[in-house]
């Protein structure tokens, strides 16, 4: 089938073989990223959002992890079939990644200028001087004040927000086509989070980088993403454009997630401040229920939900929901 995806993930299945058993972290996940879009991936801890991203980057520790199945198609090649050397050429150059805690992903004994320049030197074969100039240019781009002086500093001399800017500078140094951002603002204070979100949106609009934005925060999704994937227990349960997801929420889990988030200004006048909660907890990845993984916590579950895994039903163009309740919408004439 012909499509215009920049990167396409097909039937990705990643498992971890541990002494406790097999953890089914990512189960049969398929999606694509269009050029220049921000695709949000949202879900709670253990839903497989980070493992999906790490699989795309081939950063899964093996063993215990193993990509059991699937294809990751980028520029006409399957990333999973590349050698380590070939993958290293793509990683950091065409596809790069930023992480939640910049302190653990930066080298503490190298100046930040050197670390940013290193990426450029490696992928573009630039000289020492050129790469340092590039580092200063990138630091200016991510709005680090006094970039030339800061380039000579070490990570511990910078604040959390500044370190995340350094990570972004490093990730964007080679002008990648895809940026994978794994909870990039979670460790930051809200006012600094606002600065980083603003910076990412500006840079993204200018450089037209496609972003895979992984977060647990529906607020960040609403403000940044064009399209959203909702994950639960290693599976995609809903995917839609951001407006559709919030406006015509399909999956009971997505609804539950939205209702359980406290939102400022939503406390009702009678002072009743109880939140809608999702009962129970996320199933263990070592022992996923047969049928729909959300069924044990779902208020609408029927007997079929406990025995049969629902497929992703297309309820309207671009809006897919993994729930038996949507089966009828699906059969009402939309082409699968």
């Amino acid at each position: 089938m012909q499509n215009d995806y920049l990167l396409e993930v097909k039937n990705l299945t990643t498992r971890f073989h541990t002494h406790r058993g097999v953890a089914h972290a990512v189960n049969d996940v398929s999606f694509g990223i269009y050029p220049g879009e921000i695709l949000g991936v949202v879900g709670e801890s253990g839903c497989g959002k980070s493992v999906t991203a790490q699989s795309v980057m081939r950063l899964i520790p093996q063993p215990p992890g193993r990509i059991e199945k699937g294809e990751i198609l980028y520029a006409g090649r399957d990333l999973l079939s590349l050698t380590r050397g070939q993958m290293q050429k793509i990683r950091g150059d065409r596809i790069s990644m930023i992480f939640q805690e910049p302190m653990t992903s930066l080298n503490p004994v190298k100046t930040v200028g050197k670390q940013i320049g290193e990426v450029y030197a490696l992928h573009r074969g630039a000289s020492k001087r050129e790469s340092l100039e590039k580092a200063v240019e990138m630091l200016e781009k991510v709005q680090v004040p006094e970039a030339r002086r800061r380039a000579k500093e070490y990570p511990h001399q910078l604040s959390g927000g500044m370190r995340q800017r350094v990570m972004i500078a490093m990730a964007l140094a080679c002008d990648p086509e895809i940026l994978i951002a794994d909870e990039p603002t979670t460790a930051l204070d809200v006012t600094v989070q606002a600065q980083i979100m603003d910076l990412m949106l500006n840079l993204q609009a200018r450089q037209k980088t496609a972003v895979l934005m992984i977060t647990h925060d529906l607020g960040i999704i609403a403000e940044m993403a064009n399209r959203v994937i909702v994950m639960y227990a290693g599976r995609i349960v809903e995917t839609a454009s951001t407006l559709t997801l919030f406006g015509e929420t399909g999956h009971p889990y997505t609804k539950g997630l939205m209702n359980s988030v406290p939102v400022i200004g939503s406390k009702d006048a009678s002072g009743n401040s109880r939140l809608c909660e999702i009962p129970g907890m996320v199933p263990s990845l070592f022992d996923l229920p047969t049928g729909c993984s959300f069924a044990p916590r779902c208020a609408h579950a029927q007997s079929r939900c406990h025995t049969e895994m629902p497929p992703l039903f297309t309820v309207s163009p671009g809006h897919k929901v993994r729930c038996w309740l949507c089966e009828s919408d699906h059969s009402k004439g939309t082409t699968p």
């Binding site: 604040s159 927000g161 500044m162 809200v190 006012t191 600094v192 989070q193 606002a194 600065q195 979100m197 603003d198 925060d217 529906l218 607020g219 960040i220 999704i221 609403a222 403000e223 951001t242 407006l243 919030f246 406006g247 939205m258 988030v261 939102v263 400022i264």
Partner: peptide
């Protein structure tokens, strides 16, 4: 600065500079 889970809402964000 708080991201609001409503994509239709207009943002009036005051972004503080510095740390």
């Amino acid at each position: 600065a708080i991201p609001h889970p409503d994509p239709t809402r207009r943002r009036h964000r005051t972004i503080l500079s510095g740390d």
